[in-house]
């Protein structure tokens, strides 16, 4: 069986997810043995614009030109995989606190903002069909490697469908939220990171995006009990998931 042709692409972002793929040092040779990596901007030159079996795309769509780039990738790929918080939920580029785009440009860049050609930042699925997504800021190496294994086998990857709390307790961590009153988005955030932040006494930032059926209202009221102000909570929830329908719209009119 010929090795699947794979491309790794980047839109507007920090390119941390590509870096994370490069960081698979121990497995990199095995990965390259299993797939035919025809395009990987960060790691190689001579990238080919040919038809692909799998395209991994990171980043947020923030310019009109990126819409075209993304559509071209989609057209020549059998599977399109969104990788990272930017590609899946908009990421930090999409934080807008419900402000108008023009107003935001002016707040950030002053009068020069009028000349910034950005469009409303979007997750990939807002422009093209996404076959599945690897979450996280950045993605987790083990999830990327597992995903390749599943795809080679002919299945879509299996990802956890439960919150970070479950992974956190499986590791027998002390609860940062209950025991230490540290604001933590663990109860409403998709697992997959092996509770990376809470394992180091940091509250979960929600970079894996909201879990299906996240009880956002309850999280909100628990955070308030922990002494956070309304706008603080709203900001915390929007950092990585501004474009998620589960989060978006919860705070209109704050």
């Amino acid at each position: 069986m010929p090795k699947p042709k794979v491309g790794i692409f980047s839109l507007t972002c920090c390119e941390g997810c590509q870096l994370e793929i490069l960081n698979c040092e121990d497995e990199l040779l095995d990965i390259l043995g299993a797939i035919d990596l025809v395009s990987f901007g960060m790691a190689q030159s001579n990238n080919l614009d040919i038809d692909l079996d799998i395209a991994f795309v990171e980043g947020t769509v923030v310019q009109r030109s990126e819409v075209a780039i993304l559509k071209k990738i989609r057209d020549r790929s059998k599977l399109l995989v969104a990788i990272g918080a930017c590609a899946t939920n908009g990421g930090v580029a999409a934080i807008d606190y419900d402000k108008d785009r023009e107003e935001l440009k002016r707040i950030v860049y002053g009068e020069a903002g009028d000349f910034i050609p950005s469009i409303t930042p979007a997750a990939l699925h807002e422009h093209v069909k996404v076959d599945f997504a690897l979450q996280g800021c950045p993605i987790e190496k083990h999830q990327f490697i597992n995903a390749i294994g599943y795809l080679l086998h002919g299945d879509l990857p299996l990802l956890p469908e439960y919150p970070v709390c479950t992974e956190c307790k499986r590791k027998e961590n002390e609860c940062v939220l209950v025991q230490h009153n540290i604001p933590c988005m663990g109860p409403i955030t998709s697992a997959g990171c092996d509770a990376r932040c809470p394992s180091h006494y940091l509250g979960c930032d929600g970079c894996f995006g909201p879990v299906d059926e996240a009880n956002v209202a309850m999280e909100y009221s628990i955070m308030k009990e922990k002494g956070m102000a309304d706008d603080e909570i709203s900001r915390m929830m929007q950092v990585f998931a501004a474009k998620s329908p589960i989060i978006k719209g919860q705070f209109k009119g704050d």
Partner: peptide, 13 residues
Amino acid sequence: GNRCFNCGICSMV
């Protein structure tokens, strides 16, 4: 149901 996060902590512990 409105209160519960379905976070799984009670089941794990």
